[in-house]
Amino acid sequence: MNTLKGLLLKDLYVFKNFKSNIIFSVFMFIFLITMASLRMDIFTAGSILFLIFFGMNSISSFSYDENADSDKYLLSLPITRKEIVFTKYLFVFLNSFISLLIGIIISFIITLLIRGKINNIADSLRVCLIAFTSVSFLMCSNLPCIYKWGVEKGRMQSVIIPAIFIFILGIFGGLLLMFFPELYQDIDLLYLFKISPFICVILNILFYLISYLISFKIYLKKSI
Protein backbone atom coordinates (compact mmCIF):
# COMPACT_ATOMS: atom_id res chain seq x y z
CA MET A 1 0.00 0.00 0.00
CA ASN A 2 2.86 2.33 0.86
CA THR A 3 4.41 1.67 -2.53
CA LEU A 4 1.18 2.70 -4.27
CA LYS A 5 1.02 5.85 -2.16
CA GLY A 6 4.64 6.59 -3.06
CA LEU A 7 4.02 6.11 -6.77
CA LEU A 8 0.91 8.32 -6.63
CA LEU A 9 2.87 10.96 -4.78
CA LYS A 10 5.59 10.78 -7.45
CA ASP A 11 3.01 11.49 -10.15
CA LEU A 12 1.43 14.28 -8.11
CA TYR A 13 4.81 16.01 -7.83
CA VAL A 14 4.65 16.51 -11.60
CA PHE A 15 1.94 19.12 -11.06
CA LYS A 16 4.37 21.07 -8.91
CA ASN A 17 6.16 22.08 -12.06
CA PHE A 18 3.16 23.93 -13.45
CA LYS A 19 1.60 24.90 -10.12
CA SER A 20 1.39 28.58 -11.08
CA ASN A 21 -0.14 27.71 -14.48
CA ILE A 22 -2.80 25.60 -12.76
CA ILE A 23 -3.65 28.34 -10.25
CA PHE A 24 -3.82 30.93 -13.05
CA SER A 25 -6.01 28.63 -15.19
CA VAL A 26 -8.40 27.97 -12.30
CA PHE A 27 -8.81 31.72 -11.69
CA MET A 28 -9.33 32.33 -15.42
CA PHE A 29 -11.89 29.53 -15.44
CA ILE A 30 -13.72 31.03 -12.45
CA PHE A 31 -13.71 34.44 -14.16
CA LEU A 32 -15.08 33.07 -17.46
CA ILE A 33 -17.75 30.95 -15.74
CA THR A 34 -18.80 34.00 -13.71
CA MET A 35 -19.02 36.17 -16.82
CA ALA A 36 -20.94 33.53 -18.76
CA SER A 37 -23.29 32.89 -15.84
CA LEU A 38 -24.45 36.49 -15.99
CA ARG A 39 -26.10 35.66 -19.34
CA MET A 40 -27.09 31.99 -19.00
CA ASP A 41 -27.00 28.87 -16.85
CA ILE A 42 -23.73 27.17 -17.75
CA PHE A 43 -23.47 24.81 -14.81
CA THR A 44 -23.14 21.74 -17.09
CA ALA A 45 -20.87 23.34 -19.68
CA GLY A 46 -18.62 24.79 -16.95
CA SER A 47 -18.21 21.45 -15.21
CA ILE A 48 -17.42 19.66 -18.48
CA LEU A 49 -14.97 22.35 -19.58
CA PHE A 50 -13.11 22.02 -16.30
CA LEU A 51 -12.97 18.24 -16.76
CA ILE A 52 -11.61 18.53 -20.30
CA PHE A 53 -9.13 21.24 -19.39
CA PHE A 54 -7.66 19.64 -16.27
CA GLY A 55 -8.74 15.99 -16.42
CA MET A 56 -6.30 15.01 -19.14
CA ASN A 57 -3.21 16.58 -17.54
CA SER A 58 -2.19 13.22 -16.10
CA ILE A 59 -0.53 12.32 -19.44
CA SER A 60 2.27 14.74 -18.54
CA SER A 61 3.38 12.40 -15.74
CA PHE A 62 4.18 9.86 -18.48
CA SER A 63 6.29 12.44 -20.29
CA TYR A 64 8.29 13.24 -17.17
CA ASP A 65 8.89 9.55 -16.50
CA GLU A 66 9.89 8.98 -20.09
CA ASN A 67 12.34 11.88 -20.16
CA ALA A 68 14.04 10.81 -16.92
CA ASP A 69 13.84 7.10 -17.88
CA SER A 70 12.32 6.72 -14.41
CA ASP A 71 10.72 3.34 -14.97
CA LYS A 72 14.12 1.67 -15.18
CA TYR A 73 15.04 3.13 -11.81
CA LEU A 74 11.66 2.39 -10.22
CA LEU A 75 11.84 -1.24 -11.32
CA SER A 76 15.21 -1.59 -9.66
CA LEU A 77 13.55 -0.59 -6.37
CA PRO A 78 11.16 -2.96 -4.57
CA ILE A 79 8.37 -2.01 -6.98
CA THR A 80 6.65 -4.37 -9.40
CA ARG A 81 5.54 -3.69 -12.97
CA LYS A 82 1.97 -4.36 -11.88
CA GLU A 83 2.18 -1.63 -9.21
CA ILE A 84 3.58 0.87 -11.71
CA VAL A 85 0.80 0.28 -14.27
CA PHE A 86 -1.94 0.08 -11.64
CA THR A 87 -0.88 3.35 -10.03
CA LYS A 88 -0.77 5.14 -13.37
CA TYR A 89 -4.36 4.06 -14.06
CA LEU A 90 -5.41 5.08 -10.58
CA PHE A 91 -3.74 8.44 -11.09
CA VAL A 92 -5.39 8.99 -14.48
CA PHE A 93 -8.81 8.06 -13.07
CA LEU A 94 -8.45 10.15 -9.91
CA ASN A 95 -7.20 13.14 -11.88
CA SER A 96 -10.21 13.06 -14.22
CA PHE A 97 -12.65 12.37 -11.41
CA ILE A 98 -11.33 15.09 -9.10
CA SER A 99 -11.22 17.56 -12.02
CA LEU A 100 -14.88 16.88 -12.75
CA LEU A 101 -15.74 17.14 -9.06
CA ILE A 102 -13.97 20.48 -8.67
CA GLY A 103 -15.55 21.69 -11.91
CA ILE A 104 -19.00 20.77 -10.62
CA ILE A 105 -18.39 22.43 -7.24
CA ILE A 106 -17.03 25.67 -8.75
CA SER A 107 -19.77 25.85 -11.40
CA PHE A 108 -22.41 25.02 -8.79
CA ILE A 109 -21.32 27.77 -6.41
CA ILE A 110 -20.94 30.41 -9.15
CA THR A 111 -24.25 29.53 -10.81
CA LEU A 112 -26.04 29.53 -7.47
CA LEU A 113 -24.52 32.85 -6.41
CA ILE A 114 -25.26 34.59 -9.69
CA ARG A 115 -28.46 32.99 -10.90
CA GLY A 116 -29.90 31.89 -7.56
CA LYS A 117 -30.86 28.39 -8.76
CA ILE A 118 -29.75 25.55 -11.02
CA ASN A 119 -32.24 24.10 -13.47
CA ASN A 120 -32.52 20.31 -13.78
CA ILE A 121 -29.49 19.55 -11.64
CA ALA A 122 -30.01 15.78 -11.96
CA ASP A 123 -30.00 15.99 -15.76
CA SER A 124 -26.93 18.22 -15.68
CA LEU A 125 -25.09 15.71 -13.53
CA ARG A 126 -26.09 12.94 -15.95
CA VAL A 127 -24.58 14.91 -18.85
CA CYS A 128 -21.43 15.49 -16.79
CA LEU A 129 -21.13 11.76 -16.19
CA ILE A 130 -21.54 11.05 -19.92
CA ALA A 131 -18.76 13.57 -20.60
CA PHE A 132 -16.62 11.89 -17.93
CA THR A 133 -17.17 8.53 -19.66
CA SER A 134 -16.11 10.03 -22.99
CA VAL A 135 -12.90 11.34 -21.41
CA SER A 136 -12.35 7.88 -19.86
CA PHE A 137 -12.74 6.34 -23.31
CA LEU A 138 -10.14 8.69 -24.76
CA MET A 139 -7.71 8.18 -21.91
CA CYS A 140 -8.17 4.41 -21.83
CA SER A 141 -7.54 4.07 -25.56
CA ASN A 142 -4.48 6.33 -25.19
CA LEU A 143 -2.77 4.54 -22.31
CA PRO A 144 -1.95 1.23 -24.04
CA CYS A 145 -0.48 3.27 -26.94
CA ILE A 146 1.72 5.13 -24.46
CA TYR A 147 2.86 1.85 -22.90
CA LYS A 148 3.55 0.38 -26.34
CA TRP A 149 5.24 3.29 -28.10
CA GLY A 150 5.89 5.93 -25.43
CA VAL A 151 4.37 9.41 -25.15
CA GLU A 152 6.37 10.95 -28.00
CA LYS A 153 6.42 8.06 -30.46
CA GLY A 154 2.86 7.07 -29.63
CA ARG A 155 1.39 10.52 -30.21
CA MET A 156 0.01 9.65 -33.64
CA GLN A 157 -1.33 6.26 -32.53
CA SER A 158 -3.00 7.94 -29.54
CA VAL A 159 -5.09 9.95 -31.98
CA ILE A 160 -5.62 7.29 -34.62
CA ILE A 161 -6.68 4.39 -32.38
CA PRO A 162 -9.58 6.18 -30.59
CA ALA A 163 -10.61 7.58 -34.01
CA ILE A 164 -10.70 4.05 -35.42
CA PHE A 165 -12.87 2.90 -32.49
CA ILE A 166 -15.27 5.80 -33.02
CA PHE A 167 -15.30 5.14 -36.79
CA ILE A 168 -16.09 1.43 -36.28
CA LEU A 169 -18.84 2.33 -33.80
CA GLY A 170 -20.28 4.83 -36.29
CA ILE A 171 -20.25 2.29 -39.14
CA PHE A 172 -21.81 -0.32 -36.87
CA GLY A 173 -24.54 2.11 -35.75
CA GLY A 174 -25.12 3.18 -39.35
CA LEU A 175 -25.48 -0.41 -40.56
CA LEU A 176 -27.91 -1.16 -37.74
CA LEU A 177 -29.96 1.90 -38.72
CA MET A 178 -29.92 0.83 -42.35
CA PHE A 179 -30.92 -2.81 -41.86
CA PHE A 180 -32.93 -2.66 -38.64
CA PRO A 181 -34.60 0.79 -38.55
CA GLU A 182 -37.28 -0.56 -36.19
CA LEU A 183 -34.60 -1.01 -33.52
CA TYR A 184 -34.18 2.75 -33.28
CA GLN A 185 -37.90 3.37 -33.20
CA ASP A 186 -38.15 1.04 -30.19
CA ILE A 187 -35.37 2.76 -28.25
CA ASP A 188 -36.72 4.98 -25.51
CA LEU A 189 -34.06 7.73 -25.45
CA LEU A 190 -35.54 9.35 -22.37
CA TYR A 191 -35.33 6.06 -20.49
CA LEU A 192 -31.77 5.57 -21.73
CA PHE A 193 -30.86 9.04 -20.47
CA LYS A 194 -32.48 8.24 -17.12
CA ILE A 195 -30.40 5.08 -16.66
CA SER A 196 -27.27 6.67 -18.19
CA PRO A 197 -25.46 6.94 -14.81
CA PHE A 198 -25.69 3.18 -14.44
CA ILE A 199 -24.50 2.65 -18.06
CA CYS A 200 -21.68 5.14 -17.52
CA VAL A 201 -20.44 3.36 -14.41
CA ILE A 202 -20.43 0.02 -16.25
CA LEU A 203 -18.67 1.57 -19.28
CA ASN A 204 -16.04 3.26 -17.09
CA ILE A 205 -15.29 0.01 -15.32
CA LEU A 206 -15.04 -1.80 -18.66
CA PHE A 207 -12.85 0.86 -20.28
CA TYR A 208 -10.42 1.00 -17.39
CA LEU A 209 -10.32 -2.77 -16.87
CA ILE A 210 -9.75 -3.68 -20.53
CA SER A 211 -7.24 -0.88 -21.03
CA TYR A 212 -5.36 -1.79 -17.82
CA LEU A 213 -5.10 -5.45 -18.82
CA ILE A 214 -3.77 -4.55 -22.28
CA SER A 215 -1.27 -2.04 -20.86
CA PHE A 216 -0.10 -4.45 -18.18
CA LYS A 217 0.49 -7.18 -20.76
CA ILE A 218 2.46 -4.76 -22.94
CA TYR A 219 4.51 -3.49 -19.98
CA LEU A 220 5.23 -6.99 -18.69
CA LYS A 221 6.91 -7.94 -21.96
CA LYS A 222 8.70 -4.64 -22.38
CA SER A 223 12.47 -4.42 -22.04
CA ILE A 224 13.12 -1.34 -19.97
Binding site: Y64, S70, Y73, S76
Partner: peptide
Protein backbone atom coordinates in the same frame (compact mmCIF):
# COMPACT_ATOMS: atom_id res chain seq x y z
CA UNK B 1 21.87 3.59 -12.69
CA UNK B 2 23.85 6.05 -14.72
CA UNK B 3 21.03 7.14 -17.02
CA UNK B 4 17.88 6.74 -14.97
CA UNK B 5 16.40 8.39 -11.89
CA UNK B 6 13.36 10.33 -10.71
CA UNK B 7 11.84 13.15 -12.78
CA UNK B 8 14.07 16.25 -12.73
CA UNK B 9 11.36 18.41 -11.13
Amino acid sequence: LDDSFFAPI
